[in-house]
């Protein structure tokens, strides 16, 4: 049998136009268009591109929910067995659209879907956990590598063949762990890797660490005696009773509490909400995590001018990076507005 495949592309790859046509709404065409011709060649007689659904990148970005719905309807009208989207290379809005359409197809139509993007495309971080995104180069020049890789993966999914690791199949990690048997035990594999590392040879880790972006160090405080310092903690110290119900793990919020006039984070008024360490010591003396007592003494001695009137707190325990970043951005904006010069952030 020949599998029926629908292809999603943007206005540019459909030949409608560039940025000036990015506002084009969703439309549906029979057969393959643009990059679909390359897919058609890659599929041979095994699969056929029965239709192409097109949407302008600008239109999609501005009407995400509505556009997704319309596109999904157009796709399902072709009664496809699978969908391919893009590849979007490093085009941000196109990548986001491909990711959103792919996710909707996977969730709502329940059929295989594959898209392709450059690893730094913002669509990757948004959608890689739910869908297969084949890694491509950053521009359309990479189409000749992207098409065979995407075609191969979608055919595997259609035939319900086992899909290998991201490195073997060329898709971007979804953060899924799969149990498998190895010839050597973990200790041996780890030593093998270490030996390769020591020799300066290439090795492939079995547990890649997340990559974090960097921020340039801020200018130092030139005049500490006139500096306003704010206290922030991920150690979960909150007013007793945890009035804002900050979660013991995977926190979705932070608290902002006044410490104007407070001389010490004593055990009567404060406790920790953190669920990731033994709270005994922090609850006996919360200053061990939120050192208000000593900071007040230093403030009094004139070592710095003033402890900012509020402290910010959350629970750093399995907190998603996106949440932590959001908290930090909001806290930073407020401190900036209030003229705070420096921050002491304590973590357990």
């Amino acid at each position: 049998m020949t599998y029926r495949i629908v292809h999603y592309i943007n206005q540019f790859f459909a030949g409608i136009g560039g940025e000036e046509k990015a506002g084009t709404g969703p439309e549906s065409k029979d057969g393959a268009i643009g990059p679909g011709m390359a897919f058609k060649a890659a599929f041979g007689s095994e699969a056929e591109i029965v239709g192409t659904v097109i949407c302008g990148d600008g239109y999609f970005a501005e009407n995400m929910d509505g556009a997704s719905e319309k596109i999904l309807k157009m796709i399902s009208d072709f009664s496809p067995d699978a969908v391919i989207a893009g590849p979007a290379f490093n085009a941000g809005r196109y990548g986001t659209a491909c990711g959103a359409v792919s996710e909707a197809v996977s969730k709502k139509l329940g059929i295989p879907v594959v898209t392709g993007m450059y690893p730094e495309n913002p669509g990757v971080d948004m959608y890689r956990k739910g869908i297969y995104i084949v890694e491509t180069s950053d521009s359309a020049r990479g189409i000749k590598d992207a098409v065979p890789a995407m075609a191969k993966l979608i055919m595997k999914l259609l035939r319900a063949e086992p899909v290998g690791s991201p490195a073997d199949e060329g898709y971007i990690e979804r953060g899924v762990r799969v149990n498998c048997f190895q010839d050597k035990i973990g200790a041996e594999r780890a030593v093998d890797m270490l030996v390769k590392k020591l020799k300066g040879e290439e090795f492939r880790t079995e547990y890649p660490m997340p990559v974090f972006d960097r921020v340039a160090p801020a200018e130092p405080i030139k005049d500490m005696k006139n500096a306003v310092i704010a206290l922030v903690t991920s150690g979960g110290i909150v007013p007793k009773g945890n009035p804002d119900h900050i979660e013991a793990s995977s926190a979705t919020k932070y608290g902002t509490y006044s410490i104007a006039g407070v001389q010490s984070a004593d055990e009567v008024a404060y406790a920790t909400a953190h669920g990731g360490y033994d709270p005994t010591y922090a609850n006996t003396d919360p200053n061990r995590v939120l050192p208000i007592d000593v900071l007040r003494e230093m403030e009094k001695n004139g070592e710095f001018k003033k402890l900012y009137d509020y402290f910010f707190t959350t629970v750093g325990n399995g907190t998603p990076v996106a949440n932590a970043k959001k908290f930090g951005t909001e806290i930073g904006a407020r401190l900036k507005k209030d003229g705070v010069d420096a921050v002491i952030l304590t973590s357990t």
Binding site: F212, D213, R214, V215, P217, A218, E219, P220, I221, V232, A324, K325, K326, F327, G328, T329, I331, G332, A333, L335, K336, V340, D341, A342, V343, I344, L345
Partner: peptide, 11 residues
């Protein structure tokens, strides 16, 4: 990092 990104030094 998000706080430091505003230009305020963080320790």
């Amino acid at each position: 990092k998000a706080i430091e990104a505003t230009g305020i030094a963080v320790v």
